[in-house]
Nucleic acid binder design. Structure first.
Lengths: 190, 190
DNA sequence: CAGTTTTTGTCGTTTATACGACAGATAGTG
DNA sequence: CACTATCTGTCGTATAAACGACAAAAACTG
């Protein structure tokens, strides 16, 4: 597929930087992590950092897409029909990802949420759009609006569960599911 | 102490090469390991190998002194008196090192023995010379000869135990010890 | 608030590594 | 034995990484 030959030095150094960053993020607060901390942990020169990333936010973005979120993103994307099971599994994938990462990076997780939200919503919008377009006879515009609101609704549910709910994600989903399903079950136009 | 600043790239690349080599040596026979095998495992360019080592024998030498033999060599060196216990512990250190490494590198160990023998004898000669010179009133020449023969005798014993003995190293040593001790217990000259 | 220290980006120069190519040496094959 | 393929060691060139220095920004301190 996309087999561009990348200089092995770049692969190694990027990995050194990312690994060092992930180590730091598990103990320190994101805002207290300096570039020097990262490059020291990676045993590379500080100037080299800027050869790979513009700043630590850029690095965070790369670490999320290339490491921390790869599993949850591929789990979200692997469904091929929009139904009960798909919605439930997506909800479970996202909530599990969030609780796991927040446990792993107790001090830094808060700083990640905004970037994570953006990436997850992108993924959700993408999969919902595709599934609606493929499986239902809906005009493009309606399809888009449904996907947008499904995305925000299910993502909002994961946040609410995380912050306000005492019950299991499965139990929470039993309440949310009927509402979500009504959002895309449009009568077919003639 | 000897704190010369070494370019971190050199440290990292040397480690990559050595680690890859140690991985290979655990499964393959030394003579069947090519430079390409090593550099592929280390994810470095083949030409870079020659920047660090002249050939795979040079690499083997470095891996032995800097990794595989560091423990046994420091165990040998840490004694400060020539007596029963010292000789026994040295014998046990060496035999344990040999059996462990030979189990770890079943196919390659045979190719290592000559280099290992050289290094171990150097260490043994060094420690025996020092201990004899410090603790006994012996002329330098006698001291040297005693150290040489002690070295060969105890090293030969480890090889014999390894190849021909069914008993425990401790039991073997009970027989060898009295002979070894006679080798340096010279009457003091007046 | 002023004064100090730390951190951030950036730059120029030096060094290490990547890469492809090469001839000679070794090994494998019919 | 000849033939082919693989491996070795070396070279020149391009790129990445190291290093020290710098000014500006940010954070800290009294």
């Amino acid at each position: 597929m996309t087999e561009v030959k990348v200089d092995p030095r770049i692969i190694r150094t990027r990995k050194l930087i990312m690994d060092a960053f992930m180590q730091l993020v598990m103990k320190k607060e994101f805002k207290d992590i300096t570039i020097k901390d990262i490059t020291t942990g990676a045993t590379i020169n500080r100037a080299t950092f800027y050869y790979h990333f513009t700043d630590k936010y850029d690095l965070l973005d790369a670490v999320l897409t290339e490491n921390l979120m790869t599993n949850v993103l591929s789990e979200i994307m692997e469904h091929d029909e929009l139904n009960k099971e798909t919605l439930t599994q997506i909800f479970l994938s996202v909530t599990k990802f969030q609780t796991d990462l927040s446990n792993q990076c107790r001090r830094s997780f808060e700083a990640f949420t905004s970037t994570i939200e953006k990436k997850l919503k992108d993924a959700l919008l993408g999969i919902f759009s595709n599934l609606l377009r493929d499986s239902y006879e809906i005009e493009e515009e309606l399809c888009h609006i449904s996907a947008v609101m499904l995305t925000w609704a299910i993502y909002g549910a994961t946040i609410d569960w995380q912050q306000n709910s005492q019950q299991s994600p499965e139990a929470y989903m039993e309440l949310a599911l009927p509402i979500l399903m009504k959002m895309y079950d449009h009568p077919i136009h003639f």
